[in-house]
Nucleic acid binder design. Structure first.
Length: 554
RNA sequence: GGCCCCUUGGUCAAGCGGUUAAGACAUCGCCCUUUCACGGCGGAGACAUGGGUUCGAUUCCCGUAGGGGUCACCA
């Protein structure tokens, strides 16, 4: 009885690995093309960190005319969530980051290197596990979980390194005959890797991002096939990324310490070792301590949060790219209108330590992104958002499309467009007063700032309404008239003169403007008042002035 | 605890032995012939710490402190 017999007994139906090697040949890609992947578990939750990894992986692949694929790692049945794959696929789609290959719906996939869902790859893992057993590089382990716990307790008590290795690897040297007998007797077992490593030897590894990292060799006989017949992450990683011909493993740096194991696995399986790029996680400041953005504690950890808030996807991508390569910011300034895919992304320029998530900066980018859009784009994007998250706004927009476009066009499209909206969630509050239904039929809290006497307010508003307001005036005329009005009520015509001798007047033209602004909009801060009045139109302006005058009469 | 990694202003970060130590966000002031949002100009603000090496260390080496990661039949 030899290894071959043992392997045949355990996996009688497994194919030869040559079959798969042939089925999934080296990819025919241009020189220097990089193949990357995003390989999440379908837990139904997409973390920004995951999006970040996917963005980096995809950017690198695109830049080199390589391939970016989506593989679903669902080997842990306990964590399985319904429609988990759909959530991931849709999130990537939302961000315009659909993969070249891999899962495209819950069950469908595209590409020649599939299946792209690990639970569908069982027979492949079995073939490679069988191969390893035949070579004497893997073996069945009959230790029960109680036994393992007991072992661990002993190790801890003796203060030695825990794990299944060396003398603790109880079944590592079990004679083949005995193993076969146990299996035939129906004893439970799993498959372990027979590690050739020694803890007292060091290996050198060069990570694309982290640089040179030295580790002790792995000497743990880790599990490669679990009791449920599915592989562990480590084994699946080696088999899948080899067969899918991944050139660069871009993943979270929590995997860095597994590199010695992975390197060993690739070697023992006879695979070409890929390049590794371990990305630092996005952190959050929690009472002076840095910690990873947490799914449970931080709403902004969920990709869905950005969608709900209406932060443009481009803003999120730009922010993430900015964390990834700080030169992005300079590039963006030099090329404000270029597509982000034209940016020359450098994997090895990524930071070795994790960046603190900065919502303020993200929103600042959001402002810029939105400011560059046309009124039509703002309308389309915000309406799409509103349909899902703000019914009132959606209705308002749909019932007043032309008028809404005018509002959104205020101070837009010129050299210095407005930058007051950072996310769709803020939009309604910024423009709601422009709609007569929302303004005229509602109780408004008027606060005229410096001018507070009722009679004076009424006087100003009446004068404007009766004498100075002409909707057809051009901007200069319009403005001159407000100055005339200021003069007529005894206010300074020019702010500068007023500032020189403030005691000479009760206020200046700006204070008069504020009275008009508040009467027309209910607010002290608004975009350009001339444009607002043009958009409102004559009747609305008059109605609003009257409403304000009446209010003072109460 | 073992092993591994990290440490430049509030935040993201350039920098690779000699620099007035960039830039962006945030913050403060002034200007932008009326507010706000922009935009412009300017200000304040940093090399964790102790030893080396060196003519010279933010940069190289060692220690200390702080932070992070990892030690599953989870990924």
């Amino acid at each position: 009885m030899n290894y071959k017999d043992l392997a045949d007994l355990i996996f009688p139906n497994a194919k030869e690995i040559a079959y798969y090697e042939e089925k999934y040949p080296e990819r025919n890609l241009p020189e220097g093309a990089v193949v990357t992947r995003f390989a999440p578990s379908p837990t139904g939750f997409v973390h920004v960190g995951g999006l970040y990894q996917a963005l980096v992986a995809r950017t690198v692949a695109k830049k080199t005319e390589g391939v970016f694929f989506l593989r679903v790692e669902d080997t842990d049945q306990k964590r399985e969530v319904e429609n988990g794959v759909t959530g991931i696929v849709n999130s990537l789609k939302d961000f315009d980051m659909a993969p070249d290959e891999g899962m495209v719906t819950e069950i469908d996939e595209i590409g020649n290197y599939g299946p792209y869902k690990q639970s569908s790859r069982k027979e492949i893992y079995e073939a490679y596990a069988k191969y390893l057993i035949e070579q004497g590089k893997a073996y069945p382990c009959f230790a029960s979980s109680e036994e393992l716990e007991e072992m661990r307790a002993k190790q801890e008590a003796a203060k030695i390194r825990p794990g299944y290795y060396g003398v603790w690897a109880k079944y590592r040297n079990l004679p083949v005959d005995e193993a076969i007998e146990k299996i035939k007797n129906g004893e439970d077992y799993i498959i372990r890797f027979r590690s050739p490593g020694r803890e007292d030897r060091k290996i050198k590894h060069k990570d694309v991002i982290k640089g040179n990292v030295d580790f002790p060799e792995n000497d743990q006989d880790i599990v490669i096939i679990k009791a449920d017949g599915l592989p562990t992450y480590h084994f699946a990683h080696a088999v899948d990324d080899h067969l899918m011909r991944t050139t660069h493993i871009i993943r979270s740096d929590e995997w860095l310490s597994s590199v010695p194991l992975h390197l060993q696995l690739f070697q023992e399986l006879g695979f070409k070792v890929p390049k590794y790029a371990h990305i630092s996680p996005i952190m959050k400041n929690d009472n002076g301590n840095k910690r990873k953005l947490s799914k449970r504690k931080d709403p902004e950890a969920a990709v869905s949060y950005y969608k709900e808030e209406g932060i443009p996807t481009d803003a999120v991508k730009e922010y993430l790219l900015n964390i990834a390569n700080s030169t992005f910011e300079n590039w963006r300034r030099a090329n404000p209108d270029k597509n982000i895919e034209e940016f020359d992304f450098q994997l090895n320029k990524m930071s070795v330590s994790g960046a603190l998530f900065d919502m303020v900066k993200l929103l600042d980018i959001g402002k810029t992104v939105i400011s560059k859009m046309t009124a039509e784009q703002v309308y389309a994007k915000s309406l799409e958002w509103a349909k899902e998250y703000d019914e009132e706004l959606a209705t308002l927009f749909e019932n007043n499309k032309e008028y809404s476009l005018k509002i959104l066009g205020i101070e837009r499209g010129n050299a210095k467009p407005r930058k007051d909206i950072s996310k769709w969630h803020d939009l309604k509050n910024a423009i709601i007063y422009m709609y007569d239904n929302e303004f005229l039929n509602r109780e408004i809290q008027y606060d005229y700032a410096k001018v507070s006497r009722k009679e004076e307010i009424v006087k100003i508003l009446n004068l404007y309404k009766e004498k100075y307001f002409h909707i057809a005036d051009d901007k200069q005329t319009w403005f001159d008239k407000i100055k005339d009005l200021a003069e007529e009520v005894g206010f300074a015509r020019e702010v500068k003169e007023y500032k020189k001798e403030p005691e000479k007047w009760p206020g200046h033209v700006g204070d008069i403007s504020t009275v008009l602004r508040v009467a027309l909009t209910g607010r002290q801060n608004t975009p350009d008042m001339y444009e607002i009045m043009q958009v409102l139109g004559k009747d609305s302006v008059i109605a609003r002035l009257e409403k304000a005058i009446q209010n003072e009469g109460k």
